[in-house]
Amino acid sequence: MAPVDLVLLGLVFLFAAGYGLLNGMRDAPNAIALPVRTRALTPRAALLLAAAMNLIGGILSGGLLTAVWRELPPVVPEGAPGLVMALVAQAVAIAWGYFAWRRGMPISMTHALIVGLVGAGLALSITGHASFEGLWTPTLVTAMLLGLVLSPVLAWLLSWVLVTPATWAARDAAPGGVNHAARMSLAISGAANALGHGVQSGQRLTFMVALAFAAIGRPEALGWWVPVAAGLSVALGTLFGGWRIAHTLTDTLVRLDPLRAGVASIVSAGLLFVGSFALHLPLSSTHSATASIIGAGVNQRYTAVRWPQFQKVVGYWLATLVAPALAALILAAAASPLF
């Protein structure tokens, strides 16, 4: 292996760890914001529970290694071009994720990572180091983005629909009993959300390491140590907690009673599990959690959703599909002299 390839491989591993840490910190509110806001769990207990579930989820993602290989591009560039593609995609995803976190915006780092890979692949095609059609077929890109686009739509719709039977079933119950049952469901579904997020994040990090190993011609080096390391990095990041985004989800964007919060949390957890284990699709825990909260908030007699704030969040979602791709294209093109 050339010295430059060895340095790039080390940087890919370093940035993968950084991606896992930031992802855990940013996405902790997806699991803990509603349980903490409704007093189902204390902040400390919620963070510890989410970190433990993220670790377990990361380890369980090792069972999806076959699915990870299926998601790899048909032709991974060999040597430095392939390593730079992985490195640049992670760098722009980290930068965009941190930028959005500073502003309290719940965005999908999975979106940022995928479009970063597409932007870097386009740069390699322009500089003549790879074939974009061989690297990213339209079918592959469409399949990966379709899951990310459909998840918020399904989350919103399911939450909106399921609030009606939930409130009907609780119509004759005492408010205290309903809230107690809702808080219990929030504690359980919050743990399930963290577990699903750990599986999705572990698969994403394993994908990036698999891409790097494929670039150096060592695919056999990918083993169970990768998802375990991914789970550890995400769990450690979770302990820091992204309270800026938790405030956005539960106060700035919408306020829910415990019953509707329980419905929203159950819907987002269910989508993550179906996407991970049944369909093997990359789903965004941020989009699922945010959309399910909005869907449950819309189905109330009083206006709970702050639509100007929601429009701002959607604006960041759309920008996530553009800004990281442009940044990755520029950075990968600038790095072409390394080849």
Rank of each mutant, 00 (worst) to 15 (best):
P324S: 01
S185D: 05
F339I: 10
G20K: 06
S151N: 04
R70S: 08
F99W: 12
G242Y: 15
S288F: 01
R218Q: 15
L281S: 07
F339W: 15
G134V: 00
R39T: 01
L145G: 00
H280P: 12
I114F: 11
F213N: 04
M208H: 01
P324K: 11
I59L: 12
L162N: 11
M53V: 02
G121K: 03
V178I: 03
T286C: 07
M25S: 03
V12P: 07
R183Y: 10
P227Q: 02
G190I: 10
L249I: 14
R204G: 03
F339A: 15
V4G: 02
P227D: 14
G58R: 04
N54E: 15
S292W: 14
A46F: 10
V68F: 03
A323E: 10
P81H: 08
A155C: 05
A89F: 07
A192Y: 11
A215W: 04
V4P: 04
L338E: 10
L55N: 02
S284Y: 07
G116S: 01
V115L: 02
L256C: 01
S61Q: 09
A100I: 00
L272Y: 05
N23T: 06
S276K: 05
W225I: 06
R244S: 06
V7P: 14
T290H: 08
S108G: 04
E133W: 12
P3Q: 13
A291S: 08
A235Y: 15
L83P: 07
Y316R: 01
G97L: 04
R183W: 15
I293N: 06
A174Q: 11
A323W: 09
L205V: 07
T303M: 02
L9K: 05
L140I: 00
I59C: 09
H111M: 05
T42E: 13
V228T: 05
A91C: 02
V141E: 02
G134Y: 00
A173W: 06
Q311S: 13
Y98P: 07
A46Q: 11
A296Y: 02
M85H: 04
A269Y: 15
L21F: 08
L186H: 07
P337G: 10
G121D: 09
A335T: 15
L113H: 02
L329I: 01
V141F: 07
R26C: 01
T42P: 06
A52K: 08
R44N: 15
V92I: 11
G242H: 14
Q200H: 12
A296H: 08
Y19P: 13
V92C: 07
T250D: 01
A327C: 12
L72H: 03
